[in-house]
C-alpha cells in the first residue's frame, strides 16, 4: 500500500474540512456561519423579531383597548382618520390591537406547549435510547401505537373533558405532540451513547442519569434546537385550529385562530377582519418554518426532509 501511516486520506472535501480545522472553528461557529449565509432564514429571523416586538410592545403604544367597542366605527375599513389603522370588527373593536394581543396568546401557546412537548419528548427519548434493549422496544412500541392514533382528535377530546382554560391548551397540545421529538432524541441517543467519551464516563462510575444529563443531553442540542423551531409553528397552527373550531381560547381572550374564525364570518362585509390576523398568522408560521429549515441545513447538512 502506498498510504503511509501519517498521511491521512485527503479528498477535495476532506481538504475543505481541513481548512476549518486550521482556522479552529467549532462546529457551532461553523453552523452559525452556514446559517448566516441562508438569506431566507436571516430575513425570516428579522421579520419574526419585528413581529415579536410588535406583539409585545404594540398594545402599549396603540391608544385603543382591545375590548373597547367604538360604536362610532363598527366594521370600519382601515383608515388613519378614524384612528383604527387596520379597521374595526362588527362591534367596533380595533383590529390592530386585537391582532397584537391575540398574537401574544398564539406565541405564548406556541412556546409553552413546545416546552411541554420538549420536556416529555426529550426525557422519554433519551431514556429509551440510553437504556436500550427491552425497555427501548416497549417504549418505542408505545410511541408507534400512539403515532397511529388521530392525535388532533385527542386534543379535542382533552379540551372537552377538562374545563377549558389556557393552561390546559398548553398541556393538551404539548402532551400529544412529543412523539416526533421522542423518536429523534432516541435515535440520537442511541448513536451518542456508544461513543468513546460516554464509554469513558461510564467506566469512571458516573451514574446513568448523570451521563444522560451531562453527556447525552448537551450532544442532543443540535437536533433539539432544529426540532423546537419546527414544532413552534406546528403548535401555533394547532392552537389556531382549535380556536377556529371554537374549542380553543375563550372570549374575552383571543388568538390569531379565533380572530381568523371571527373574520371569516364577516369577510364579505369586512374582509380586513379576516385578512389582518390571517397575514400575521401566516407570516409567523412562514418565518418559523424558514428559520427551522435554515437551522436544520446549518446544523445537519446531510439530513434534509
Amino acid at each position: 500500500m502506498t498510504k503511509s501511516t501519517d498521511s491521512p486520506v485527503i479528498d477535495p472535501f476532506e481538504a475543505a474540512l481541513g481548512v476549518h480545522a486550521d482556522k479552529g472553528r467549532s462546529p457551532w461557529e461553523d453552523a452559525w456561519h452556514r446559517l448566516l449565509k441562508n438569506r431566507a432564514a436571516v430575513y425570516s429571523a428579522f421579520i419574526m423579531g419585528t413581529i415579536i416586538l410588535l406583539v409585545l410592545l404594540g398594545p402599549l403604544v396603540v391608544s385603543w383597548e382591545s375590548d373597547f367597542t367604538d360604536w362610532d366605527f363598527t366594521s370600519s375599513p382601515p383608515s388613519f382618520s378614524s384612528g383604527h389603522w387596520l379597521g374595526t370588527d362588527a362591534v367596533g373593536r380595533d383590529i390592530l390591537v386585537r391582532t397584537l394581543e391575540g398574537g401574544r396568546i398564539s406565541l405564548l401557546v406556541g412556546l409553552v406547549a413546545t416546552l411541554v412537548s420538549l420536556i416529555i419528548g426529550v426525557g422519554y427519548g433519551a431514556i429509551a435510547g440510553y437504556f436500550g434493549g427491552t425497555a427501548d422496544r416497549i417504549m418505542m412500541r408505545i410511541v408507534d401505537i400512539i403515532y397511529a392514533l388521530p392525535f388532533l382528535f385527542f386534543v379535542i377530546l382533552l379540551m372537552m373533558v377538562f374545563e377549558r382554560n389556557i393552561v390546559l391548551i398548553f398541556v393538551a397540545i404539548g402532551a400529544v405532540n412529543w412523539l416526533d421529538m421522542a423518536r429523534i432524541v432516541r435515535g440520537q441517543t442511541l448513536s451518542i451513547k456508544n461513543m468513546e467519551f460516554v464509554e469513558a464516563a461510564r467506566s469512571c462510575g458516573v451514574a446513568p442519569w448523570g451521563i444522560i444529563q451531562r453527556h447525552i443531553i448537551p450532544n442532543l442540542m443540535g437536533v433539539v434546537i432544529v426540532y423546537v423551531t419546527l414544532t413552534i409553528p406546528q403548535i401555533i397552527l394547532v392552537e389556531s385550529f382549535l380556536s377556529f373550531l371554537g374549542l380553543g381560547v375563550q372570549e374575552p381572550m383571543s388568538s390569531w385562530g379565533a380572530l381568523v374564525s371571527d373574520g371569516a364570518q364577516d369577510m364579505e362585509s369586512a374582509p380586513w377582519t379576516l385578512i389582518v390576523p390571517a397575514v400575521f398568522l401566516t407570516v409567523t408560521l412562514y418565518c418559523f418554518n424558514y428559520i427551522g429549515d435554515g437551522l436544520r441545513d446549518a446544523l445537519d447538512p446531510k439530513d434534509r426532509l
Binding site: L237, G257, V260, M267, P271, L274, A278, T282, Y286, Y290
Partner: peptide
C-alpha cells in the same frame, strides 16, 4: 410550497371562497 405549509387550511378556505365564490 413553504407558503402552502405555512398557510393554514382555515385561512386559505375563506380567502378562496371570497375570491372564487363570492
Amino acid at each position: 410550497a413553504m407558503l402552502g405549509i405555512s398557510v393554514p387550511n382555515f385561512v386559505i378556505a375563506p380567502i378562496l371562497i371570497l375570491l372564487l365564490a363570492v
